[in-house]
């Protein structure tokens, strides 16, 4: 009798254990309560840090590189004796304090690449809203540093005005790359390297610009920037229309000339 009872108990427990095991074996997804990121005028540093923490470990996708292997510096732990990112951020780039450095490394990550790493980080300004970027800066500062991001840093909610000029990366000035006339800054800021290769940087969708000066005159280069589809390099006919036509509106005259002169000197 007891043998039968035990066998029944065994079968019941075994079946339950099997079902529980299968349900635990598949990857687990929990449905979180959504937290709207509303960082108003009276946002506290703690709220910013908490929001940044969630972004860093979640939607920002930062942990995909930072913290795994050697693709990118590990930001939350001590690196080469310099301490976590909050402690070392102020010493990275001459003339930039911690906040400015972190903001730059998020919005134009290729402007300064820590030696020993490749420039692979995407421009987070294209993926995250300005509020989210500032929350991340605050979170990173909080890693053994002092949080000095305040509500005044954060632009008012991204209405139509903010979204109209999303490509504006780098400091606050007007136009691409904050109005800088340094050619490589313009090239990075305008996103040219997204498609064109210049020297060692950039992609392979558009023609390589490393030696463009030997193929095209300054006038032709200028024309190609302003009206991209009038002449198409051989082999790139499929990509007609891919290059944006708005650079004439976005670049200042000085920037355009600096860019043209720079490119035509690339023999």
């Amino acid at each position: 009798m007891w043998a039968t009872n035990l066998r029944i108990i065994g079968i019941v427990l075994g079946t339950l254990a099997l079902y529980t095991l299968i349900a635990n074996k598949i990857p687990q997804v929990q449905s979180e309560v959504p937290h709207a990121l509303t960082l108003g005028a009276n946002v506290t540093p703690e709220q910013l840090v908490a929001a940044g923490d969630q972004l860093y470990h979640g939607a920002g996708g930062c942990t995909a590189c930072h913290g795994l292997g050697t693709r990118a510096p590990n930001l939350l732990t001590d690196e080469k004796g310099l301490g976590p990112i909050g402690a070392r951020c102020g010493k990275r780039e001459a003339g930039k304090d911690c906040k400015a450095y972190l903001y730059e490394s998020l919005t134009s990550p290729r402007a300064y690449v820590v030696s020993g790493y490749e420039p692979i980080m995407p421009e987070m300004g294209r993926i995250l809203s300005p509020q989210q970027i500032w929350a991340l800066v605050a979170f990173l500062e909080s890693q053994s540093g002092t949080v000095d991001v305040t509500a005044s840093d954060i632009p008012a909610a991204s209405g139509p005005a903010a979204s109209a000029a999303p490509a504006a990366s780098g400091g606050g000035g007007p136009g691409i790359a904050g109005g800088s006339t340094e050619p490589m800054t313009i090239i990075r800021g305008a996103g040219c390297t997204g498609c064109h290769k210049v020297g060692t940087e950039g992609g392979a969708i558009g023609p390589n610009l490393t030696h463009v000066g030997s193929r095209l005159s300054a006038a032709l280069i200028r024309e190609c920037i302003l009206k991209p589809d009038t002449r198409v390099a051989k082999g790139y006919e499929k990509f007609v229309g891919v290059m944006p036509k708005m650079f004439g509106n976005q670049l200042t005259g000085a920037q355009l000339e600096a860019l043209v002169q720079f490119l035509s000197s690339q023999k």
Partner: peptide
């Protein structure tokens, strides 16, 4: 809304799709 607008179940490896409402 792109990758950033994905709810939690769209993770863990988040999509690189930009939020095109900005562009």
């Amino acid at each position: 809304k792109g990758g950033p607008g994905l709810p939690r179940e769209g993770t863990p490896w988040n999509s690189a799709m930009p939020a095109w409402e900005d562009f």
